[in-house]
């Protein structure tokens, strides 16, 4: 029987991290999660790994395999060259709980801040009508299994490089599904700009690349939302038109999101040291608040054509 060699991240916050190494017997069709289960059952019963369905539908077993964010239940051992060691680590954008488990609860806080589906108050459900193509469009966003791999890979979240919060790709996907729902009557553009920090995304498309559900996150969710925000807040003609009509720009943004806490650095030796951020400008002067890498939403949409 052939074997694979696994290097598995172990440790708790405040503890010296280490990589434990295991030789795991391989059977046809095995995935990384199977190898971790073998380790739990035969070598390290206290190895912490979060998992549930083993069918790439629950989004629990997210981690980093040889540095790449992946679902461990969907990563085949046969994808690695024979003899190549496989390094398994937790998602490094989030605080460490223990071993391969990270604390993703920040995401649930962000989720709560998004205004839920809001049908028009004066139209009973029996009168809702929408087209098949609208159903198919929003269906793509609903494929999300909340594995948070897109949040993990996103450099804005991973490097903790902003001084105001960024909701991250997963929640831009959810918002896109609501904003493009033909029955939904809410307007989340002010929220996206001021609370969600949509301008922080500079469309590197890493999120799309790691999505196990193959959602075209950047092209189909983030860019259309950026266009809507840019139209509302950065289009000079719209601005002049609103002035003439005396109508303000899209509504109240809501309360600020919590910042994502970093992973415990002592337990994350492979992360580069965090560069010192300049002191955040005062909250009363939003027009000078331009943290690194933040690009103007209007410029981006223009460059995308």
């Amino acid at each position: 029987m052939s074997q694979v060699h696994l290097k598995v991240f172990r440790g708790e916050p405040g503890e010296a991290p280490r990589y434990d190494e295991f030789d795991v017997p391989v059977e046809e069709g095995m995935v990384v999660l199977d190898a971790l289960h073998w380790i739990q059952g035969n070598a390290a019963p206290d190895l912490a790994v979060r998992w549930n369905c083993k069918a790439a539908k629950c989004g629990s077993c997210s981690g980093e395999v040889n540095g790449r964010p992946r679902l461990m239940c969907k990563t085949r051992l046969s994808d690695f060259a024979p003899g190549e060691p496989i390094t398994v680590e937790p998602m490094r954008a989030f605080p460490l709980v223990r071993d391969l488990v990270s604390d993703v609860s920040w995401n649930y806080e962000v989720n709560k801040s998004i205004q839920a589906f809001t049908p028009p108050a004066n139209k009973p459900q029996s009168e809702w009508r929408w087209q098949q193509e609208d159903i198919e469009r929003v269906q793509e966003y609903r494929k999300c299994i909340e594995c948070f791999l897109c949040q993990d890979v996103c450099h804005v979240l991973r490097n903790h490089e902003t001084d105001t919060p960024f909701m991250g790709p997963r929640f831009l996907v959810r918002t896109a599904g609501l904003e493009m729902h033909p029955i939904d009557a809410a307007d989340r553009r002010g929220y996206l700009k001021d609370v969600g920090g949509i301008g922080y995304c500079n469309i590197t498309k890493c999120c799309t690349e790691v999505c196990p559900e193959h959602i075209k996150i950047t092209d189909n969710a983030i860019i259309p939302l950026k266009e809507r925000v840019a139209d509302e807040f950065y289009d000079p003609i719209q601005w002049a038109w609103r002035k003439l009509r005396g109508k303000p720009a899209a509504g109240a943004a809501g309360t600020p999101l919590p910042m994502l806490a970093g992973a415990s650095m002592s337990a994350q030796p492979m992360s580069p040291p965090e560069p010192a951020l300049p002191a955040p400008p005062a909250r009363t002067a939003p027009e000078v608040k331009r943290p690194r890498r933040r690009s103007d939403a209007g410029d981006e949409t223009a460059s995308e054509g």
């Binding site: 708790e12 739990q40 019963p45 206290d46 912490a48 790994v49 709980v97 223990r98 071993d99 488990v101």
Partner: peptide, 14 residues
Amino acid sequence: AVRGGRVYNPGWNL
């Protein structure tokens, strides 16, 4: 008998 602590210990859970 299980080893390890009380934090996210699958052996203890089992």
